[in-house]
């Protein structure tokens, strides 16, 4: 138990950026839009969060800034995918390239600078529970927000009218259209909100986790999040489980390196990526071929509303 607690704590801390990214992508994909640009959005979110925190001294403004940047990127993606009916995979790749490049140009003056960032804020009483307390309730407030977001999204998707409209748009846009829901408007809205959440994940890395900016600091977490959405079968609570699992693997390999293991660092660093493949393989074999349960049926397909004269 004594060894487990620090690993669990670290798992939650390093899993949170992935969790935000996964939740954002779930929101986007529920509406039927596939956004593969998470890596780029996270990087620009991390940059925006850092830059705004640095210049205003207020990390929460940084998080808000990251959310806005994410929304703008989501707007671009939905313009291409919804209005221009472009290929969603290519648009996502373009977003990744653009975000990686733009964040490295914009962030070139911030390399090596540190900020105070978000402080740890143990929740009284809850943080005294053995094991669970230190693992979940001795973090920064942005991590607590992610717990709230998981609960909110679970409720929102299944128990609200708006959530139903969103799912209808992703599962059967033609039926949603017949119900009087604007497919285009719904997809625009949730792609933007989703991208905003993804960017907050990036901001968590720079504002709360590392408290600094570095080029390519997300190191593939955006892509891991894309895989986790499938692992989570589009369910927010399972997404949290998956994200902490990955956070745990990362924390574990860092701890092994720090402990001076004989296993070379590059081999240990392969772990999260190999695990992503293993997880994806496991899910796909178990579900068999065909439609994976929970996947929005119209995911990745543009919607053509027939013109009526």
């Amino acid at each position: 138990m004594e060894i487990l607690v620090p690993i669990l704590t670290a798992a939650v801390r390093s899993g949170t950026p992935i969790l935000y990214a996964t939740l954002g992508e779930i929101v986007t994909e529920k509406g039927g839009i596939l956004n593969l640009g998470l890596e780029g959005i996270m990087l620009l979110g991390a940059y925006a969060g850092f830059a705004v925190s640095y210049s205003t001294g207020n990390p929460w403004l940084g998080v808000a800034g990251a959310f806005c940047v994410g929304m703008i990127l989501g707007l671009v993606h939905s313009f291409i995918c919804v209005t221009l009916k472009g290929n969603q995979v290519v648009s996502g790749l373009a977003m990744t390239m653009f975000g990686t490049g733009a964040s490295s140009i914009l962030g070139r003056d911030y390399v090596g600078v540190t900020i105070e960032g978000l402080h740890r804020f143990p929740i009284p009483l809850l943080s005294d529970i053995p094991v669970v307390g230190p693992a979940f309730f001795r973090h920064d407030a942005l991590i607590y927000c992610s717990y709230g977001l998981v609960v909110f999204l679970c409720w929102f998707f299944t128990s609200t009218r708006q959530g139903l409209y969103l799912r209808a748009t992703g599962d059967n846009p033609r039926a949603a259209d017949a119900m009087g829901i604007s497919v285009a408007r719904t997809r625009y809205f949730y792609t933007m909100i989703g991208a905003g959440i993804v960017a907050v994940g990036g901001a968590h890395m720079s504002v709360a986790y590392t408290k600094m900016w570095a080029e390519h600091m997300t190191a593939g977490r955006g892509w891991i999040a894309v895989a986790l959405v499938i692992f989570a079968i589009w369910h927010p609570a399972r997404a949290a489980f998956g994200a902490y699992l990955f956070g745990g693997v990362e924390a574990f390999q860092l701890r092994l390196q720090a402990a001076g293991t004989t296993i070379p660092a590059p081999i240990l660093m392969m772990l999260p990526y190999l695990m992503t493949i293993a997880v994806l393989l496991f899910i796909s074999i178990r579900k068999g071929k065909g439609i994976i349960f929970g996947a929005p049926a119209a995911l990745g397909l543009p919607f053509f509303r027939e013109e009526r004269d």
């Binding site: 291409i80 472009g86 290519v90 648009s91 390239m97 653009f98 975000g99 490049g101 140009i105």
Partner: peptide, 15 residues
Amino acid sequence: SSMLVLQGLILFFVL
């Protein structure tokens, strides 16, 4: 990696 900005934009405009 700054030229990735241009590469990303080219892909967007190709779409």
